[in-house]
């Protein structure tokens, strides 16, 4: 199967878009949190690759081209943010305080849990930046001596878990204010949290996309400080 598909980058495109389209259809029919189109698409892609014994590289040859849109998409997050600029200014203290304390909670909990489970240094460094957007996370992980493949996995697991569970967790922790919900989503589950927050509403989405940016910058500063901590 690999030989037939080698060099045909449209296979990755087709599989990624097709499975996501199926995911959207399923979500429309069954509007549950677990019916996340990204999760459905990922599972379907993995099943297809495993069943037909296709290498990930063959799939990635096409799918990686879609990722070139990551920069323009991230740039466009400024638009929902701008529309809420008055509310942003009004809540500056809440935004900054909550994101800095959230990033500290991330650094401390990841350090504590890695020590508790006896995970070694390279895994710790790979997990450290997992709450921020993939592009920043990979840079931080490489800077600290982690593995970028593991970082991507941790970022994806974090994003999926945070995105899928956002509604349930906010209810569990009694986070009701739309501003607080948006900040919590963006700071914990980066871009995937933001796409979930946008489903809640434009204010939540704007807060979330702002949280992603601020959290990214705070993590760039904090992660090297915490990387030296002994496990």
């Amino acid at each position: 199967m690999n030989e037939i598909l080698q060099g045909n980058m449209y296979f990755g495109f087709f599989l990624a878009l097709g499975t996501y389209w199926i995911g959207l259809k399923v979500q429309k029919k069954f509007p549950y949190t677990l019916c996340n189109p990204l999760l459905i698409s990922t599972v379907l892609c993995i099943i297809v690759l495993l069943v037909f014994r296709i290498d990930y590289e063959v799939f990635d040859a096409g799918a990686s081209h879609i990722s070139y849109f990551l920069t323009p998409c991230t740039v466009c997050l400024a638009i929902p943010m701008y529309k809420q600029v008055r509310i942003l200014k009004k809540n500056l203290a809440a935004i900054l305080l909550s994101i800095v304390s959230g990033c500290l909670a991330a650094a401390l909990s990841i350090w504590g849990l890695c020590a508790l489970f006896g995970l070694d240094g390279s895994i710790y460094h790979s997990l450290q930046p997992k709450s921020v957007t993939t592009a920043i996370a990979i840079g931080v992980s490489e800077e600290l001596g982690g593995s970028s493949a593991l970082t991507i996995m941790a970022v994806v697991v974090t994003g999926m878990f945070g995105g899928i569970m956002a509604r349930v967790l906010c209810r569990l922790f009694h986070i009701k204010d739309p501003i607080a919900v948006g900040l919590a989503c963006g700071n914990s589950a980066h871009a995937m949290g933001t796409s979930k927050a946008l489903e809640f509403g434009e204010l939540e989405g704007a807060m979330s996309s702002l949280a992603v940016v601020v959290a990214g910058i705070v993590t760039v500063v904090l992660a090297p400080l915490f990387s030296g901590m002994i496990l």
């Binding site: 809440a94 959230g102 990033c103 909990s109 006896g118 995970l119 997990l127 986070i175």
Partner: peptide
């Protein structure tokens, strides 16, 4: 399993701390 546990537990911690801090300030 431990890696997934770190991801899931710390995500919950970040969400709770961020959301509750914001809510308290507001």
């Amino acid at each position: 399993v431990p890696i997934l546990a770190v991801c899931i537990l710390s995500t919950m911690a970040v969400m709770a701390v961020t959301g509750l801090t914001a809510q308290a300030v507001l």
